[in-house]
């Protein structure tokens, strides 16, 4: 009984991590690039950032869901091409939970920085442009850090 270990498909959880990472990079990246161009063109208090940020949030959720579904289908197709039919692994087992906890720690650290900074800025009555974008930036970086640590754990070990 030979287990072919050269092409083990990723677990569902790892796939989600990859998709989520790519989506955050894309959506938050695009948003912040756009925001930077706005700073060049307008004074800070005239930048209409609220709607673009909402769109970015919504897009990241939708794209993650769509991306995960496509990834699952694509994975099945890919396996079919190579004639390898394995049950798609969507179980979440103790290893997935352990890795999720690991990822959460990174996200939590970034989020704490976001929250503390936000409360301080709010107490100083700073324009919400800075407050909202600080929180979004902290969480975007946190999400990326979380995804990177999860993928490393899946590949290299916890």
């Amino acid at each position: 009984m030979n287990d072919d270990e050269s092409h083990v498909p990723m677990t569902g959880e790892e796939k989600i991590a990859w998709v989520y990472g790519a989506v955050v990079l894309l959506t938050s990246g695009a948003y912040f690039v756009w925001l930077a161009t706005q700073f060049a063109a307008h004074p800070a208090d005239e930048i209409a950032w609220e709607v673009p940020l909402l769109i970015t949030l919504g897009a990241s959720i939708v794209l993650t869901i769509v991306g995960t579904i496509l990834g699952a289908i694509g994975g099945a197709v890919w396996q079919g091409i190579w004639g390898r039919f394995e049950e798609p692994d969507f179980t979440t087992d103790e290893r997935d939970r352990a890795i999720k906890e690991l990822g959460n720690r990174r996200m939590f650290a970034a989020m704490t920085a976001g929250v503390v900074g936000t409360l301080v800025l709010a107490m100083l009555n700073v324009d919400t442009l800075w407050i909202g974008n600080w929180v979004f930036l902290a969480c975007s970086i946190g999400a990326l850090a979380e995804v990177v640590s999860k993928i490393r754990a899946y590949r290299r070990g916890v």
Partner: peptide, 23 residues
């Protein structure tokens, strides 16, 4: 590996990781 994974209710990747000392 898939047999063991199925009996335990875990992913095959987890069994591989254990065998290879990564988990």
């Amino acid at each position: 590996q898939a047999d063991i994974a199925a009996k335990l209710g875990v992913t095959r990747q987890t069994i591989i990781a254990i065998e290879q000392g990564r988990y």
